[in-house]
Design a protein around this nucleic acid. Structure first.
Lengths: 233, 233
DNA sequence: CTTTCTCTGGAACGTCGTTCCAGTCAAGCT
DNA sequence: AGCTTGACTGGAACGACGTTCCAGAGAAAG
């Protein structure tokens, strides 16, 4: 615990949790998830590993803090949108864009049970779901559905970025997968073959938003329907 | 490459890729994601690490194979459901149940770009989306939305299982989180406070299925609507 | 019997997260 | 001014991991 009881600076270049987290974000952005090492971080900050551990409990905490920093913008944007739908779209896009810019944060979101930043996101989603007139019993469930969709996309984006990173660039990589898809057995994979040509050209952001719209359309359709338990099987 | 050109058995207890994968699944089930180590695996199989590497390229490949094995049941179940909706529900539940039983597989699904098993799942989802009369331009996008939702839930389930594992049991753990939620600032987190009491009692499987139903309702609502581009902002 | 090839297992390498600890330096006390 | 305290530093060291290396076992083929 860095309990700076007296606000005195030891030195000009003193270590601090903020400087450490900022350096971690920089290193993650530059060299990916494998690039963050306490050794590399020590070198980058011109100190030793022990000094870092005095400010930060462990690597997990550091990753949580780094993700928090990177998502701060997405949660801060409290722009008063016209409709609840637009507010949800804006919030979801904020998370998407942050993860798109920092793919390692997507991995972190999918890895940690409830990343602190996502509590705020969940709260905002829930409020808008509420504003849409969803019955109380469904609010929790449907807000969770939105959140899980967002987290799923974040995780997949990060996974894709992780494997595409080395040599080739993104469109090239997707084109390769698409050509593999179109060479699949027509009897076994008719659907994937049929949509293979859409893969290289598709816009991830548009597709993500279309998924949000799909869920929102479901909310509108089911809102005010029979209380619950209207499912088959 | 274990290219067994002549089908001769070296010994009764010979190592094989299948035995290795089966042992890996057993160890993952028993001691979680951190429990799978080439050292522990060697000990379990009474051999050395080098022997395992002759049958398996690396740990990633082993994890993919283990996940594949555990998801095989979910993809194999080609029960002819009455409606496309029911087929989608059955498929999604198959994946959910497999991940629920083997949480480490959820981590793997969220970590790997396209786990081979998920290609089959994507194909099935797509076919049923097609059967629902969704226009071609939306099939890819909406099947992806379903898949991403499923992967998101899988990842979160795994993350939860990872942190709840040690001491306490699940309801106890959720109750603890719920009480934290209900102690949040009423001004900042009205929604989360309002739904906190639903957290401990809720059924994950039901909630997952409700999310699928939500998306399916969206599909029904938007199917046949204006071609595309009917969104705001 | 010798060679060949598949397959084995244990030693060893390099890297990681983390811990340990002797040491530095400013502030407060006497 | 000297001493003590406690916040901070940085580098050495530990244990565990994934992976590689390699000497060799043992059945099949010549």
């Amino acid at each position: 615990m860095p309990a700076r009881t007296r606000n005195t600076e030891r030195r000009e270049d003193a270590l601090s949790r903020e400087r450490i987290v900022a350096a971690a974000v920089a290193m993650l952005d530059e060299s990916g998830e494998g690039g963050l090492t306490f050794r590399a971080l020590s070198a980058h900050l011109r100190t030793g590993a022990g000094a870092i551990y005095w400010h930060v409990a462990n690597k997990d905490e550091l990753l949580v803090a780094a993700t928090e920093e990177v998502l701060a913008g997405a949660i801060a944007a409290e722009t008063a949108e016209h409709t609840p739908e637009d507010a949800i779209r804006a919030l979801a896009l904020g998370v998407f864009d942050a993860v798109d810019e920092h793919p390692w944060a997507g991995t972190q979101l999918a890895r940690v049970p409830v990343q602190p930043a996502m509590v705020h996101v969940f709260e905002r989603l829930g409020r808008q779901i509420q504003a849409l007139g969803v019955p109380l019993a469904d609010q929790f469930t449907w807000a969770s559905a939105l959140l899980n969709y967002i987290l799923g996309v974040a995780g997949q984006n990060a996974a894709l970025a992780r494997t595409v990173a080395p040599g080739t660039n993104r469109p090239e990589f997707l084109g390769e997968i698409a050509s593999q898809w179109s060479r699949l057995d027509p009897a076994e994979f008719p659907f994937i073959r049929a949509v293979a040509d859409q893969l290289p050209a598709h816009d991830d952001r548009d597709q993500f938003l279309a998924g949000i719209d799909l869920i929102l359309a479901g909310v509108t359709a089911l809102r005010g329907a029979v209380p619950r338990q209207s499912r088959g099987q």
